[in-house]
């Protein structure tokens, strides 16, 4: 059995990483909640964010963490035409039509990445991305802490947006009863479009963080998507704070799984957990009566 330093370091790192995972899943979650859409291109939006962060750094020389708002706006804007030209016309055509359309978007994006940026594996190389932080017996990557802080801040901001603003009211109302919301004057299409863009913007930021903490390439989207889905199911579809807690729980449990079974089992632990939650708590494991 590894010593206590390793165990605690692993768990701390897992929790911090979980926070970042939560951010990467946030967009998927709110889009699921509001539009009932499994956005199969979500992972590719994350990759767009990662490339955006990388090229922002290369062309401006400004640290991508400072450029995060720019990345967020860029990816968010990119999502607007996707919604209005591709998704909106399919409203009322059932879940498959929109889902398949987003899959098509996903393969188009992936192809575009290869053509534009080559298939190389990239990473946003910053010093802070590789510096360890040591607190007593615990050592964990500094980037995890930075990413965690940014993610949690952003998730709380989105939570505030959803729970305390007029837009958030419209969003929640549209999610549960679009027709009633519309008759009350809510422009449901606009709300959906902005939600979709918000989801993409969050994915953009998450992608930059992932790109700094790890590595990415044109086809990284698939793995991002599956991880995000696990977080979303754990936290409950469309539940912002649930997503944060789902992410942290997944990060921690994966770390424990990795520690006890080997790193290869981390994702397996995640997926098994995912199916178990689906089987026993289909609304997410912290869903209480938010009916």
């Amino acid at each position: 059995m590894p010593d206590i330093g390793i165990i605690s370091s692993t768990i701390v790192a897992g929790v911090l990483l979980g926070g970042i995972l939560a951010l990467t899943a946030l967009g998927l979650s709110i889009v699921l909640g509001v539009m009932r859409l499994v956005n199969l291109a979500h992972g590719d939006f994350l990759v767009v964010g990662a490339y955006a962060g990388l090229f922002f750094l290369q062309f401006t020389g400004i640290d991508p963490l400072i450029g995060l708002p720019v990345v967020a706006v860029f990816v968010g804007m990119l999502a607007l035409p996707v919604y209005s030209f591709l998704l909106a016309p399919l409203a009322g055509r059932g879940a498959e039509a929109q889902m398949m359309t987003m899959f098509a978007v996903s393969i188009i994006l992936e192809n575009a990445f290869v053509l534009a940026f080559s298939a190389d594996t990239r990473s946003i190389a910053r010093d802070y991305a590789t510096v360890p932080l040591t607190l007593g017996p615990i050592t964990f990557p500094l980037i995890y802490l930075i990413g965690f802080a940014i993610s949690v801040t952003l998730i709380l901001a989105v939570h505030w947006l959803v729970s305390a603003t007029a837009f958030g009211r419209d969003l929640r109302a549209s999610a549960v009863d679009a027709q009633a919301a519309a008759t009350l004057g809510v422009d449901v299409k606009r709300v959906q479009m902005l939600t979709f863009a918000l989801g993409a913007a969050c994915a953009g930021v998450g992608g930059t963080l992932m790109g700094a903490a790890f590595q990415f390439g044109p086809s990284s989207g698939g793995a991002y998507l599956l991880n995000s889905l696990a977080v979303v199911v754990l936290g409950g579809l469309g539940n912002v704070i649930g997503t944060l807690i789902g992410g942290i729980a997944l990060g921690a449990l994966q770390s424990i799984g990795g520690l006890t079974l080997g790193d290869g089992y981390r994702d397996l632990v995640g997926m098994a957990l995912f199916l178990l939650v689906l089987a026993f708590r289909p609304d997410g494991f912290l869903a209480k009566g938010r009916t």
Binding site: R172, D177, A180
Partner: peptide, 9 residues
């Protein structure tokens, strides 16, 4: 008809 109150609000 049916009130259509938003449960999440």
């Amino acid at each position: 008809e049916g009130r259509r109150i938003f449960p999440t609000l």
